[in-house]
């Protein structure tokens, strides 16, 4: 065997070994009989999340569940990726992001309500400058609309709004702008409309010079658009931890419903903003996953020709199994 052959063989062994080890990690995580530890690694995103309330009030401790907040992701897709890699077990994501992840083979399911547009709590709102010429939907033709991510709740809600008003999405221009930059982009007239959520929406509105063009309630009515998701790995290996998580979470939701001021203060401390910028969030009864709303988003994405959704079903995306 000459030196070249040896080198090739070693290189091949190293690379294949890498893939094999990576695959082993996934196999072990899914099916092996690991010692059950009532612990959940949670990908935190700085949004109004009842998990923060549950931590603050000690609900996880009461359940004997260790909840580890992991890192700080920018959004649901990153949290889902971290779950796919095995680093975390749960997080928050838009229903649309969960659908994309499940379609791509990420083994997760939505298990609890976290963001729903309801009366007095529209959450998703679209703003224009106060002196903007945009007064009604027809004025949106040829305009730039800033949303946090393309292919997600804000984006799709606008498309529905346009459809409802007989405007094609090709008649507007969508730009992906992070939440933190939307207000600035709007005020600098880089975009004409900004889709925002609290605290960004409340901070921007409080500064003045903006008006609300429409809200998610105007377009979708009451609609659940974000869920707490859990990895199937965790649901399979430690269902008791998932139930404990659900129970603590629901207690936190009850706390928020009964003590909105106090809840806002807790969240405001985490965001390091004034409490007045925290919107009132409302939740589905018992924080249940609404199958109708999952179906709505799934069908909407199919109508947008999003690939890979043909075999997906509602019960493959969300479940109330651990929320009984």
């Amino acid at each position: 065997m000459n030196k070249l052959s040896i080198f090739i063989a070693i290189a091949a062994i190293i690379i294949i070994g890498f893939f094999w080890l990576n695959n082993q990690k996934n196999d072990e995580s899914l099916g092996s009989k690991e010692r059950v530890v009532h612990e959940i690694n949670y990908a935190q995103i700085k949004v109004f999340d009842p998990v923060y309330i549950a931590l603050d009030q000690g609900y996880f401790d009461d359940e004997g569940l260790v909840l580890n907040l992991k890192g700080e992701t920018f959004g649901g897709p990153q949290a889902l990726m971290a779950t796919a890699s095995g680093d975390v077990d749960a997080g928050i994501a838009a229903t649309t992001a969960i659908i994309n992840a499940v379609a791509a083979g990420v083994n997760v399911k939505g298990i609890l309500d976290v963001q729903s547009s309801m009366n007095d709590s529209a959450l998703m709102k679209w703003y224009v400058l106060e002196d903007s010429i945009i007064k009604n939907p027809n004025d949106l033709r040829g305009k730039k609309i800033g949303v946090n991510t393309l292919g997600a709740s804000f984006h799709y809600t606008v498309i529905q709004y346009l459809k409802d008003n007989n405007i094609s999405e090709n008649e507007v221009e969508f730009l992906a702008v992070p939440h933190g930059n939307l207000e600035q982009a709007l005020r600098a007239k880089q975009i004409d409309v900004a889709g925002m959520i609290d605290p960004f929406s409340e901070i921007a509105y409080d500064r003045g010079g903006l008006r609300i063009l429409f809200t998610a309630m105007d377009v979708l009515g009451e609609n659940q658009f974000s869920l707490i998701f859990m990895s199937e790995r965790k649901m399979l290996n430690d269902p008791e931890a998932v139930r404990k998580f659900s129970r603590a979470y629901k207690r936190a939701v009850d706390f928020i419903n009964n003590n909105p001021e106090q809840a806002a203060e807790i969240i405001a401390n985490i965001f390091e903003v004034d409490k007045k910028y925290i919107s009132q969030h409302k939740f589905q009864p018992e924080a249940q996953v609404r199958e109708d709303d999952i179906n709505y988003w799934l069908e909407f994405m199919k109508s947008q020709s999003v690939p890979g959704l043909e075999d997906l079903t509602v019960d493959g995306i969300g479940t109330n199994e651990f929320n009984q």
């Binding site: 897709p77 994309n100 800033g146 292919g151 221009e173 730009l175 992906a176 930059n181 982009a185």
Partner: peptide
Amino acid sequence: MIGSNSGIGFFILNASYTFRI
């Protein structure tokens, strides 16, 4: 990846967000 709707960087980011790996 910020404030775009075109470009290879935008394409890559959008692919990652929508899990079109």
